[in-house]
Amino acid sequence: MTTQATRAVITAEGLTKRYGSLRAVDDVNLHVYESEIFGILGPNGAGKTTTLEMIEGLRHPDAGTASVAGFDVASQVDQVKSRIGIQLQTTSLFDHLTVAELVGLFASLYGADDSSATVRRLLGLVSLQEKSDDQADTLSGGQKQRLSIALSLVNDPEIVFLDEPTTGLDPQARRNLWDLIRDIRADGKTIVLTTHYMEEAEVLCDRIAVMDHGRIILCDTPERLIAGLNGASTISATFGDTVPEPAALSELAGVQDVQLDGSRVTLQTDDMRRSMAGLLDLAEARTLELDKLTTSRPTLEDVFLHYTGRALRE
């Protein structure tokens, strides 16, 4: 999962963007390495889009520099533009053109191969072959999303920027898109994407920058971010008539904290396997009814909660 080469293809230093008194992006530093899927995770208004668009050369930072594929974004924006593919968070496209015409047009605008064979291949990649002769404004939200990903690939870019590529997709479409993104990476491209879905960041991204209030508060692999919490896993059990007393529960191996809420018991443990075994033994020994039993490991949500004191999405 982690194919981390050491060559940084994107370097941002001290990127800052102010809108009036708001620091939309505040002193952001980051490195993105070749062939990785890099995610920027954060709530609405965190500054993800602003950061991305400063790196793409679409917005001018008030301070800081960015370089992409070895070119300085401020002074060599043309070289940058032709080496990157961009999906904007909100794009609507020209009306009255078909899907295939749009892909061909954008290929031409990049000076890339716009032959119908290439257009077909790109549409195949995002499973839109059947729609190629339809007007783009008749596509569904998810199909438009895929079309704009196809457009981000027309120039065979080294780096692809996807701003919330899966927002508004149904779960199946989202999984398909994850596969597509992995395929694009397998093609040797580097991918930078933003998301506010933590499960997406967790399963899809090699590394994640967690953003809040314009700042990057953490940046690492999902595994290390979660491990860094030293976070306890959670066992949640709902008993029938009789609920064991808290003292007995807190003596179970690994259990650090016990909470009782009616017939529901929530245990925090740093040793899931042994705590679970202990809980089941207890229930067996006392012949207690166990109506429901769930376990969960800490997620990026917990990471976010821990560092910001807020849930990622309320």
Binding site: E56, D78, K81, S82, L88, T91, S92, F94, L109, Y110
Partner: peptide, 13 residues
């Protein structure tokens, strides 16, 4: 208004 100009700006055209 629709952001089409921005999308064009993102290309080298």
């Amino acid at each position: 208004e629709k952001g089409i100009l921005r999308r064009i700006k993102a290309t080298p055209f």
